[in-house]
Design a protein around this nucleic acid. Structure first.
Lengths: 196, 196, 196, 196
DNA sequence: CGGTAAGCGAGACGGTACGTCGCGTCTTAAG
DNA sequence: CTTAAGACGCGACGTACCGTCTCGCTTACCG
């Protein structure tokens, strides 16, 4: 059989260009940051025309949001059998994503965009934080069943506190103590355990 | 002995222009935000030539940093006689500064600048957060003497957690519950009191 | 063999913009003169962005040179049947071009540019003076055949003298006698006729 | 009666600064030309403040005019005993002044300024050309008395023609034959002598 | 001889124009 | 009908000079 698919004239590169654009955007985001990254540069590096980008995204923010979104890895709720094991896994996972040049840029862009363009923060919240918050709730539920923590402890509040302190450490990186200890001390305080 | 500092030759820089520039920068920052604010617009509103701005600041960030810096008001440690009274005063003070268009822009700019220009975050930390952290320690010390809280509670950790949660709320403003209650619940949790 | 000239890729430059730029440049040149004419003003009047101008011309001089070049009209050798008739036609033609605001600006720019940018004068010479010089030679040849002038009179030298005196009158306009009489007296002298 | 003019109160203007300004102006005029020469550069090179320049001259043109004026050397009517000897002396004198970078700039500036600022050309005419025109008339008068030329030859017209042709040659330097021969041929033609 | 008024170098001032860069859109030719 | 290429109108950028002004200091004269 010869090719029966007579696809509409000329769209074969679509996926390829798409990937090249996202790749170039991510590279440049990590290299020079959001502000200094130009659409022209992305197009050139991706070997793509500017309209090809604008056909897909209305703005730089949209493009970058999608680029960041595209490289999110599979997310699984850890289940190591103990509360602290699960927590370590969650924190490591978050730290690996956040405390890199790309992660910093992501957060920076999101924050600086947030006031003028709240839906961008919304996207980040929904796509990224929400699942982790729910995962955290699952971890907490298991811990409660194991009697590792009190039954009335609000997992969302704890999660938000941890997220906040990570954000805080991200911003004032050089001026605060190492992040790990910070988070550990916080959790011990919240869980009413003596620091180990 | 006379002062060793000699006034430099030439016409001194106009303090009046300086003020006008800072004023215009703050106004525009609050009105349109950092990104949409042009140096031309600042110069025009301040009734000043562009070079007069560039003579003082190498970049928009430097200018805005100085503008923000210039409008920090006097800071006093509250002493209402009770822990929660003091805390309310501190939180209100922080909220008044942070949860305004100008405050949001300040934080946004600071964060987006932080990775490429860490000393900017450093300045914010030193000039703004540090004093409040110390004030918080004083308030805690008084509360401990009144036996309102446990003696081993680390005020810095609590302060950083509160700061973090405020930052978090600032970024994800629309997606979380109202800030006040959030902070109150957090503090009750940390201070091991039942929510009132 | 096919044409070796390939049309370059991308959107071609707009002939419409090109015309508008030249038109605006000529207008402003005549209105305010070369020095007081800004590229911004040209762009605005032409309804065109500044980069569109700079894409075509590296400097104001280049632009103006092209603008002037673009409005050179068709040139025909006069043939009135008598030497003086032809000469009158030539001089009138030259005067109409030169002794106008635009003409003055043209010559002024050319001269002030000449030392730093000799090829500009070269262009003017080749495109404008050369044809007239040749026309003058033709007129002279006809006059010689009619025995109106001596056979050994060098038309180029006479032409250059006339051109020189016109230039001289252009520069020192207010301080010399009216041009027409000047040129007439000169020609009578050169042609060894008594002034009529 | 002694001088009724009272010297004005206050510190008199420094002759030294004056000289330095003129010197710097001439150097820069020859080096970079009128347009690319900035008052700032003149002030810096002269080791002088800008107001010191503006106190003396209202504009760049005025300054440059004075600078050029200041370096005019003594002018004497040649009297070699023969017409052609005198003419050679006059032409050499003119050529020495005109066909140098500084001379070209002078003429260029004058011409480009002439239309917007005719009095500048007027100054050049009065201070520079007028004396030479008169000298030329004297030389002609002597030649007529020696019967070297016809009595009815108008020295002013001849002078203007020579001036014009020199101007012409200055502008179209590269495109015409060497100046000397040109002028000689012209004169022979005007004086009705066969070219020697 | 001491006051004083103008000149001095330096350089900041409000402006204007410069030439460049990036935006997001439009227009080609090629496939 | 999409692509790569690239020109378009727009507008902000940061720089260079303009001509004026304000400093703190001479410097020469005049009372």
């Amino acid at each position: 059989m010869s090719k029966p698919v007579k696809s509409p004239p000329g769209r074969p590169r679509s996926a390829q260009s798409h990937q090249a654009i996202l790749q170039a955007a991510l590279e440049l985001l990590a290299e020079v940051g959001f502000d200094r990254m130009s659409i022209d540069a992305i197009a050139t590096r991706a070997g793509v025309g500017k309209p090809t980008i604008y056909r897909r995204y209305k703005s730089k923010q949209e493009l970058v949001a999608d680029a960041i979104e595209s490289c999110r890895q599979e997310y699984v709720v850890p289940d190591t059998g103990s509360l602290w094991g699960d927590i370590d896994a969650l924190i490591n996972s978050a730290a690996q994503i956040t405390f890199t040049p790309l992660g910093r840029q992501t957060v920076a862009m999101m924050i600086s965009t947030a006031s003028s363009n709240p839906q961008f923060a919304q996207v980040y919240w929904t796509k990224y934080l929400q699942p982790r918050r729910q995962a955290f709730a699952v971890v907490f539920e298991r811990a409660k069943q194991r009697n590792e923590i009190q039954a009335d402890l609000d997992p969302d509040l704890v999660f938000d506190l941890i997220s906040g302190i990570m954000l805080y450490a991200l911003v004032f990186q050089a001026t605060t103590e190492p992040l790990e200890g910070y988070i550990r001390r916080t959790l011990h305080l919240l869980l009413r355990e003596p620091p180990s």
